[in-house]
Simulated assay, not measured.
Amino acid sequence: MRLRHAMPMLLAVLLLGACHSKDEAAQANGSTPQAALQTSIDLLKAGDFDRLWKHALPPADYANLRADWRLQQRDAQPTSAEDRARLDQSMRKLTGPDAENRLYAELQPKLAAMELQYHDQLPVLISMGEAMLKSAIAQSRTLSDVQKTQLDGALDALLPWAQQTPWFDQARAKQALGVAVATARQLDLKDPDQLHAMDFDASMAKYAVAWGGLKRLLAIYGLSVDDTLDSVRLTPLSSTAGHAMVRADYTLLGQPLSAETALVRENGRWYSEDLLHNARRSHRQLQQQPAPATAASAVAKD
């Protein structure tokens, strides 16, 4: 698991297991399994991703995460001229003068045409998409059987919402464009190289902006991430010899769901066992990968 792919893993672990302005408070709130998970949920809701990682990982693992962040660029593929031009055009559209109204004028006739073409097909297409996701979950080598069952339950709750949501509604589309434009301006991304060049702190700040925009977009279409996170109720199930199990009961789109998370205690604090395992595996894999040959060394070999 690459470190830039660790953010989705962190979110998945928190949602399967289920935010504080002072580092000391976050540390103290890991003193029990329930407190550790609740603090993670609060930090996730706030979009405070730096403190979320600092809370969710032991100090040494958090330090490795920060140090390894730039090492991933060893494997980064160069951006093609075509992709660069496409991103540049998209960002210009989203951040230009009167972008919201210009984009809406461009989108409005397309929405009407898409509604005529896909209105009856969309529920079927969404069902097909869910089936593909469930197949990918079933074939995953990194998810446990319990986690696969829990994710399947969440997908079952999301399917009716996705099928019934008026995706082609023009009023909602205009609101969504407003959020997209505001988020793009706040992200202030000029080119793909800027993304690759960002350090850990800058990346976390951009993730926070994108996360806030995503939550606002979903809320426009009836899915409140904050309501789901606020609904989490944690119940300790067991705690023996430095290992604990906690059940999270929560409501997703009106449907009650539950998930269980295994935690492990290290140096008096509790951490998600799955997240810790994946973070350490990622670090080992990254350290074992040979650095690519530089242009100078390649010439010397020739």
Rank of each mutant, 00 (worst) to 15 (best):
L37F: 08
L37V: 14
Q38L: 06
T39Q: 09
T39S: 07
A46F: 01
R51E: 01
R51H: 08
R51N: 02
R51V: 00
L52F: 05
W53E: 00
K54E: 06
K54W: 11
H55E: 06
H55K: 13
H55P: 04
A56Q: 00
A56F: 00
L57Y: 01
Y62S: 05
Y62E: 03
L65A: 10
D68I: 08
D68N: 15
R70K: 15
R70S: 14
R70E: 12
Q72R: 10
Q72G: 11
Q73A: 11
Q73T: 15
R74T: 08
R74H: 13
D75N: 12
D75Y: 09
Q77P: 07
Q77I: 15
P78G: 08
P78I: 11
T79S: 10
A81T: 13
E82D: 14
D83C: 05
R84K: 09
R84P: 05
R86D: 11
L87C: 07
L87K: 08
D88L: 10
Q89H: 15
S90Q: 10
R92S: 13
K93M: 12
T95K: 05
G96I: 09
P97F: 07
D98H: 04
A99F: 01
N101P: 02
R102I: 10
A105S: 02
E106F: 14
E106M: 07
L107G: 00
Q108C: 07
K110H: 04
L111A: 04
A112D: 13
A112Y: 09
A113H: 02
M114C: 09
M114Y: 14
M114D: 10
E115Q: 11
Q117V: 11
Q117M: 13
D120E: 07
Q121F: 08
Q121H: 10
L122S: 01
P123D: 08
P123H: 05
P123V: 04
M128Q: 15
G129S: 11
G129R: 11
A131C: 12
A131D: 09
L133W: 04
L133Y: 10
K134P: 01
S135C: 12
S135D: 15
A136N: 06
A136M: 13
I137T: 07
I137Q: 14
I137W: 05
I137D: 04
Q139N: 10
S140G: 06
R141K: 15
R141D: 05
L143D: 03
S144C: 13
D145L: 10
V146H: 06
Q147V: 11
K148R: 10
T149P: 13
T149R: 08
Q150P: 02
L151D: 00
L151H: 00
G153Y: 00
A154S: 05
L155N: 04
D156T: 03
A157P: 04
A157V: 03
L158G: 06
L159G: 00
P160K: 01
W161Y: 04
W161M: 02
A162G: 14
A162I: 10
Q163M: 13
Q163F: 11
T165M: 06
F168D: 03
F168P: 12
D169A: 10
Q170S: 13
A171T: 15
A171E: 14
A171F: 14
A173E: 00
A173C: 03
A180H: 02
A182V: 06
